[in-house]
Design a protein around this nucleic acid. Structure first.
Lengths: 204, 204, 204, 204
DNA sequence: AATGAATGAGACTTCATTCAT
DNA sequence: TATGAATGAAGTCTCATTCAT
């Protein structure tokens, strides 16, 4: 875990190390980036890096923690009573907001890297699983709230499907090259499809 | 004359190296697996490993090639005129077969590892992109065949959506723990949802 | 401020590595000397060796460069107007000085090793050729200056002969065991012979 | 030492191995040529190579032995009573023949490689020293015969000088690029110079 | 004899981490 | 605290040599 440096310069250094590390991890990949490289590009000595981070994995852990916090912040906007009501009244708007939150979440750029590390680094897997669980649960809660407690078994299946399809849509929007027109069309078509699925499975 | 058995032994050795390597890559991760480890667990000397593979990346390349071939074999069963007709007449059956092919494809277990390597290893990225393209194209062709050449722009968007959702469903079935009952329910619900999307976008 | 002593230690370490390497190359031979051996005998870790030199060949390159500089320093004393005049007035003295410079050139002990490497290592060949060219050219310039521009074609042949015989004499003095009496006699006889050749070819 | 294979095919194989090895040693360098490479290019299996040669150095040893024999054959033509007489009557012709013998000696192309190996491989050094000794001795004998036992001390010095200058001339003719015109001029000028030296030191 | 697949010691090199200043 | 030279375990790969066929 990161020490709590009280001095501003220290904080700035930690910041620089983390930013540089994330940048390099994104450009290349965790295993091929060296600690000396991080220190050099962050403009600190390798010794300094190691006074703030116990080892290479601690840097990754700090980054994961930040990613986790950032996700939670973003998610808090969606996981509210107001959101439940919106789901009930305007599913398309609700889906649009959820997707935009996930897409725009600054740190979500880090998502792929975490997926890649999930297998090799336990901490990464934990974060990944926690987030999946949260989104899945949100979908589940919304449906539950909407139906006033309908058939739970079907709901579990439905929320899994909705979760999978939603994140697939988010990944398509994030990681594939599209013109902004195409992107809009895909986003809209995806939302329509998801709405269709939800309505067909819950209504009546 | 003595050559056949020799070649067979050589082939068996290469097989063992590749199997071991894949196994280790799956358990751990390409970057943390060492060539000596592969050789040791494959029961060959490090020298032998290097008489069959130029370097560590060549092992990965061979594995990727096999994965590619395996994918092509599996895919050939789906990419036929008969398949186009099935799509027209019974979308649920068609989707079920596609999903089962992808799920059962022996080598598809290697899929996640390739996604992880896609960023770091060009060969992995190529394989990944080629396969995505093929599936996406299949969906596109089927829809095109079905509509006798309807609005192509919408088709492009639709096939992207169908592709994304289908692979998301396959990944859910492959990589998440479920009881076989849950699995069946998710599979069926996914197929129903995909059918719904297709019909709503093409019919009328 | 703390930098100077650090740099000095670094310099000393590089010096020790180079000295050890040269020593080992002279005792044995470049191809059979290992980087770990150099590091061990220089009293540094293998890691340290590689922070100062990119690879084994870089050590050789540094040694070649030093040899080159040392040669140039030595040669500057001979390649002067004063030297041209001496050549005109007292060829024996001139030849004696040239030979002594080449023999005493501290680094010339490295000469044979470079000849050996010339075939295998381009950098070694370049150094060797550059030095030959310089000596050959000096002889040529001296003769030219002496004759005020006589028959150039003959001069070219003559300076080649003088160069070859002079370096052969230097090698004999350097690499063959002799009593100092023998050495003096050979040196003197060689100088006399060279003088004889020059005078017979230029005078009258 | 090479086994004495009685069968022709075996002999031919040894021949091919030796020829290939020499070729490769000349192109590259002993230390960078591998035994597998020799076997491959000689068209024999590595196993066969090792049935005829105990190890890599044994190949070199055989080559050195051949070089030695070849030198002795060539030299026998020069080291005769007739030669002594020629030396007395026509030094230029005598020198010309000696130089041509050394230059044309097919195996002399191997000379540089041996010089390079002399430091690292004792057998190479021995051959080199033996040959030097023989040439030096020939010059000495000729002078001795010519003077009917003049001042021996001076003769030793003289023969050293003549030997050094002669081999320097041979090396120049062998290893430097020249037009055949230049080559002839250098050869002639070298012979003239050597003659001059001999006559000045012995006659009167 | 001949083969060439197999061996493994050991070469070169990297990089996470330490520690004296 | 900050530094960065120094460390050396460990990784990738080569190649002289062996041995079962």
């Amino acid at each position: 875990m990161t020490k709590q440096p009280t001095q501003q310069r220290a904080r700035a250094k930690v910041r620089r190390i983390l930013d540089t590390a994330k940048q390099l991890f994104l450009e290349g990949n965790y295993f091929e980036v060296t600690t000396n490289q991080i220190a050099r590009e962050a403009g600190v000595s390798i010794g300094t890096l190691y006074t703030y981070f116990a080892d290479k994995e601690a840097i990754l852990a700090a980054l994961l923690e930040e990613y986790d916090e950032s996700f939670n912040d973003v998610f808090a906007h969606v996981d509210t009573q107001e959101s439940f009501n919106l789901f009930r009244n305007d599913k398309k708007e609700w889906l649009g907001r959820l997707i935009d939150q996930l897409v725009n979440s600054e740190d979500r750029q880090f998502h792929l890297q975490i997926e890649m590390l999930a297998r090799a680094v336990p901490a990464a897997r934990q974060v990944q699983e926690r987030h999946s669980e949260r989104i899945k649960d949100l979908v589940h809660q919304c449906c539950l709230y909407y139906t006033n407690g309908g058939d739970v078994k079907n709901l579990k299946t439905l929320s899994t499907i909705i979760f999978d399809f939603t994140t697939a849509l988010v990944d398509e929007l994030l990681y594939t090259d599209h013109t902004s027109q195409e992107r809009d069309r895909i986003r809209q078509s995806g939302i329509d499809s998801l709405t269709l699925i939800i309505e067909r499975n819950i209504d009546q």
